[in-house]
Nucleic acid binder design. Sequence first.
DNA 1: GGAAGCAAGACCAAAATGGTCGTAGATTGA
DNA 2: TCAATCTACGACCATTTTGGTCTTGCTTCC
Lengths: 162, 162
Amino acid sequence: MLRLTKKADYGLMALKYLAEQAILAEQAGADLNLSGARSAKDIAEAYHIPPQLLAKILQTLARAGLLVSHAGTNGGYALARSAADISTFEVIRAIDGPLFITSCITIHGACDLAGHCTIKEPLRKVNDSITTLLSGISVADLTEPADHLPAAMAGGLVSIER
Amino acid sequence: MLRLTKKADYGLMALKYLAEQAILAEQAGADLNLSGARSAKDIAEAYHIPPQLLAKILQTLARAGLLVSHAGTNGGYALARSAADISTFEVIRAIDGPLFITSCITIHGACDLAGHCTIKEPLRKVNDSITTLLSGISVADLTEPADHLPAAMAGGLVSIER
DNA sequence: GGAAGCAAGACCAAAATGGTCGTAGATTGA
DNA sequence: TCAATCTACGACCATTTTGGTCTTGCTTCC
């Protein structure tokens, strides 16, 4: 259930990588103006991802405004904003598109017919909930050691009122 | 993002329908021993779902123990338990299988290599969170009018600790 | 000017999804 | 007991999505 595509996976990995590079670049000295940019090829090799595929994903993310690209020798991609300001939701939506949890919803919830699939209204809420959950997780959160992760994700905070 | 399959949609619709039938049957009089059973064809017609497809879905749900089936004339399917005791998570998992949010996880999180996709640990938490969310929503919740739905689903309760 | 890199679109193969068909077995009512 | 319903199940097929490749062109830097 609720699988996200490999492309989104790759995208998140790449962003995480770039976030780490940005930190390294910062540590190396701000005066050098190193933005932590890396070429698609570098990232692909680091994670054993098909380079051309990753390139396309990065292009998508750049078009979405999450990355900035720089062509030419020593070019590459870098985060457009701080890693803490990029949510995983944005990334996923940029790559996988604005898909909703239930099939028969486009933008205006116009199902095939009003009578059927009364299901979708409740599911829409679930969808919103997941959206806010993902929106609350930034790329920076991904770079942190697995130990002290965001707490709500453990599941305890999600409660249902009957 | 995070689309669930039409089959799961259909399954939820059918369960909702059966839940409503069970209530109706109960109101009609407990002495009649009406279990609210309905044939796959009836449900399919009610929602304009391909009958044969729905039949297969219902079979799956019956095998999963969520429904009880009865063959023969006037046979059909009915809820195996109270609608309040069947979570949407069970339904989705029964139909779509035990899929995880991130691609490279089976049961024991053995990714292709340790180094790559350090992403998946955080995502696993997201997965758990969604699981608990869905587990908290029962089929009975789906039958209620859309107004007073479970509160946490609105998103307010889901918070992230930084 | 040439190498390194992004940009973009056409294209393709494999897998998942949605749906159909046909047959067999159970149950009930006439 | 026979026919009408209904479930059970597996094979099968078409369409879409996904993952991935190839080609071509444009930028930038040395």
